[in-house]
Design a protein around this nucleic acid. Structure first.
Length: 422
DNA sequence: TCTGATGATTGACG
DNA sequence: CGTCAATCATCAGA
């Protein structure tokens, strides 16, 4: 309240909210009689006295005082209010009657479209409307209590930011279909809780200020219009918070959606190198193409993709390999040749397999499907493979069946190449 | 524009 | 929980 007090005590005159000093009190209305003049002089003197006092003092005094009951008081206050109004309105008019903030409208529209802001709670105007409704006992006006206002604002901000963290708790990674709805619902809930708090705080504060103004209007010339104006000012201040809340909610929705869409709709093929690496691993572990968690992590790292993408890839690969093993054969041979070549190049004829575990009991098996003719094709890669393999130790024909039973074993009755033994 | 390839998702299953 | 099988949606080449 200190601001209010200050405003009203400067120069013993009346000031409006912006500190403008009102020019004069007696505007030379109808010429009053001498007695009347005297009366008005008295009451003005009383008002001036009160004006110079602090509010509490003034109000305490006022109760005992006859000022309130003075028959001239309503008329005088009315005149004072009118004068004040004239001065103030000319200053304020330009700022009033602003159209609703287009930005806020956009946010509202989006929130409604996303189903985050329900029709009941929705519109940005609703809080404003409520605030106005709460305030519209529509009487006296007041000074804004900055410290009180700031405290309230800080409180709301704090609650708001705490709640906001809930939006951001998502780890920033992929969002699955099944999560999408749940996360959206979560956002909706947080938003509506927040909005409720915001509305409540806004209304509480507005009501509080309005009550104070009404109280003051007993001793100060405060017109209903001024109170309305004050409500508008408060509303504008709170609108900033409202905007922030809505903006953040919109952002949260957009981020959620883009993550979701990125995951599903904006599919990108893996890079050529990544596919190479994955295929190399797959075909060199054909008898048991189930990479361990560590292997998946390693592949993910090398390929620049996530572990779950590696899992997806292997899942797809296994099923598609099985479905069309004929076709996969060529690919298998190609990667076999590659791997073997790499082994030969890196280790030499005497060495084991380089890179992935081509040797050993687990992998390095290439199988044909029905009819060995597939394998006997003149495919260059196969020839290359034969060449390489013969260089690095030739064929052997033993224990491939020692590997864990695999879904691929049924195809292993054809010629099978084993990795070279050193 | 059509079509096969491919990455992702989903529901069932052990 | 990992995998399979089916399916979706997009990519990419013809």
């Amino acid at each position: 309240m200190e601001d209010g007090q200050r405003m009203y005590s400067q120069q013993g005159g009346l000031t409006n909210m912006s500190g403008n000093v009102l020019p004069q009190y007696n505007m030379g209305q109808d010429e009053p009689s001498d007695q009347r003049k005297q009366e008005i002089g008295d009451i003005l003197q009383q008002i001036m006295t009160i004006t110079d006092q602090s509010l509490d003092e003034a109000q305490a005094r006022c109760r005992k005082h006859t000022l309130n009951c003075h028959r001239m008081k309503p008329a005088l206050f009315s005149v004072l209010c009118e004068i004040k109004e004239k001065t103030v309105l000319s200053i304020r008019n330009s700022q009033e009657e602003e159209p609703p903030d287009p930005q806020l409208m956009r946010l509202d529209n989006m929130l409604i479209a996303e189903g985050v802001a329900g029709p009941e709670k929705g519109g940005g105007s609703s809080a404003a409307a409520n605030a106005t409704a709460a305030a519209s006992g529509g009487q006296p006006d007041s000074a804004i209590e900055h410290s009180d206002y700031r405290a309230k604002l800080a409180q709301i901000r704090q609650i708001y930011h705490t709640e906001l963290e809930k939006y951001e708790q998502s780890d920033g990674s992929e969002i699955k279909n099944s999560d999408y709805e749940a996360k959206l619902a979560q956002i909706r809930q947080v938003y509506q809780t927040e909005y409720g708090k915001y509305e409540q705080a806004c209304n509480e504060f507005t009501t509080h200020v309005v009550n104070l103004l009404r109280e003051q209007s007993r001793t100060r010339p405060i017109a209903p219009k001024e109170i309305e104006r004050m409500v508008t000012i408060i509303r504008k201040k709170f609108a900033a918070i409202e905007m922030q809340l809505k903006q953040s909610t919109c952002e949260a929705v957009m981020i959620l959606r883009s993550r979701f869409l990125d995951a599903r709709r904006k599919r990108r093929n893996f890079s050529k190198q990544a596919t190479e690496l994955l295929n190399e691993y797959f075909y060199s572990h054909l008898s048991n193409p189930y990479p361990s968690e560590e292997a998946k992590e390693e592949l993910a790292r090398k390929c620049g993709i996530t572990v779950s993408q590696v899992s997806n890839w292997f899942g797809n690969k296994r099923i598609r390999y099985k479905k069309n093993i004929n076709k996969a054969q060529e690919e298998a041979n190609m990667y076999a040749a590659k791997t073997a070549a790499a082994a030969a190049a890196n280790v030499g004829p005497e060495g084991g397999a380089a890179g992935y575990n081509v040797g050993g009991g687990q992998a390095g098996m290439y199988m044909n499907l029905n009819g060995g003719d597939n394998y006997q094709s003149s495919d260059n890669s196969v020839n290359a493979l034969r060449h390489v393999i013969s260089q690095s130790g030739g064929y052997s024909s033993d224990s491939m069946h020692s590997t864990p039973a695999s879904m691929y074993e049924q195809h292993m009755n054809q010629q099978v190449l084993h990795s070279p033994r050193s």
